[in-house]
Design a protein around this nucleic acid. Structure first.
Length: 321
RNA sequence: GGCCUGGUAGCCAAGAGGCAAGGCAAGGAUCUGCAAAAUCCUUAUACGUCGGUUCGAAUCCGAUCCAGGCCU
């Protein structure tokens, strides 16, 4: 499989479509927000200048199939584990029909999950336990984890030690292990290559600002308004961050429009920086600076080299082809 | 022309005599089921100007400039 990762506004999808056309591929989106139905403009699912049709289960954009959009209703839960299940089965299907799966997305954690697996994949969440734990302080939570799983507790770094969300999950896992033993996890062993797209901050900020303006004109706020009118929980929308957070706060009268816009803009910049920190988490990644004129050439070379070995592997693992 | 209110870092903003809160922006980082979330770290000799009172003034007094408002 081929993966394309990078901060928002680097043109990942356009590149993926291009490659899919050349190498007979289908795309899987690795984006934690595009999985929701009706969140189209704010998540950048629609590009406005590329012809696209929605089908159940996939979209066709510029003639290429994209999987991973519209998987669940707004307000529902969708986790990295759900993504992993979805993406691995879809990948297998694409592979079986002799096509190349191309995973594209800005959710670093999902890419990481796909390439490295998730150890605790089989351990479900425990709503009762969570509700109990949510009332405790982080110090308290950490104490509990120390008792339950010393080595895990020690491996948690300073910042996560004060992160209730991560502490609660760690306790959840530790409690589960205690009663049910260890769980299996899977790592996909296909030949993969990650293409990382990047550029200097100022360059990306500029593009992000323009893209924001464009989507504002195309009805981004109305999209959020619609969701609220359909009784999607404002708290849930707020929790999504970025567009959905700030336009919800504006539409529910918490702040003024220009303030929402400014904060959104700042959060997008933050998000871009945050996404860049994922680069060093990945192996087999080739990074390209899209602000440089010759990046496409270098990219084609890299892909060609990788594709030759990939094809041999694919033939062996897919004899029915 | 007269009266009032305000001028604090790139932006917003608290403080109303005794070492100048905080937020945003900016830059790092963590990451194994909420990841566009959550959490952590870093960063500024900033009180419009000039004088005065005082041991000490962003805070009090006077003048002056700028902005906004009201009046004639």
């Amino acid at each position: 499989m081929l993966l394309i990762f990078g901060p928002t506004v680097t043109g990942k999808t356009a590149l993926a479509i291009d490659i899919a056309k050349k190498l007979n591929g289908e795309i899987i989106s690795a984006d934690s927000r595009q999985v929701y139905k009706g969140l189209d403009i704010g998540t950048g699912k629609v590009s406005f200048d590329t012809p696209s049709q929605k089908h159940s289960g996939y979209w066709i954009v510029d003639g290429i199939k994209i999987h991973g959009f519209d998987l669940v209703e707004p307000g529902q839960n969708f986790t990295a584990a759900d993504f992993l299940k979805f993406a691995s089965t879809t990948m297998r299907q694409i592979h079986q029909i002799g096509k190349l799966p191309i995973i594209v997305g800005g959710t670093g954690f999902y890419i990481k999950a796909l390439t490295s697996g998730i150890k605790s994949i089989g351990i479900p969440k425990d709503q009762k336990l969570r509700r109990k734990l949510e009332k405790l302080s982080t110090q308290n939570l950490y104490q509990q984890l120390l008792k339950l799983d010393l080595s895990r507790a020690k491996s948690i770094n300073e910042s996560d030690r004060q992160n209730p969300r991560r502490l609660i999950r760690a306790i959840e896992i530790a409690t589960y292990k205690k009663y049910q033993g260890n769980t299996k996890y899977k790592i996909l062993n296909t030949k993969y290559l990650i293409i990382g797209l990047t550029a200097p901050n100022a360059y990306l900020y500029q593009r992000a600002d323009n893209w924001l303006d464009q989507r504002l004109q195309k009805g981004m706020i109305d999209e959020v308004k619609n969701l609220l009118e359909k009784k999607v929980n404002p708290k849930w929308l707020d929790g999504l961050g970025l567009e959905y957070r700030w336009w919800t706060r504006y539409l529910t009268g918490q702040i003024k429009k220009y303030q929402a816009r400014e904060r959104l803009r700042g959060d997008i910049h933050n998000f871009i920086r945050h996404q860049k920190t994922w680069f060093k988490q990945f192996e087999n990644i080739s990074i390209f600076d899209i602000s440089k004129p010759d990046w496409r050439h270098q990219l084609e070379k890299t892909i060609k080299d990788w594709y030759d070995t990939y094809r041999q592997w694919a033939k062996k693992s897919n004899p029915s082809e």
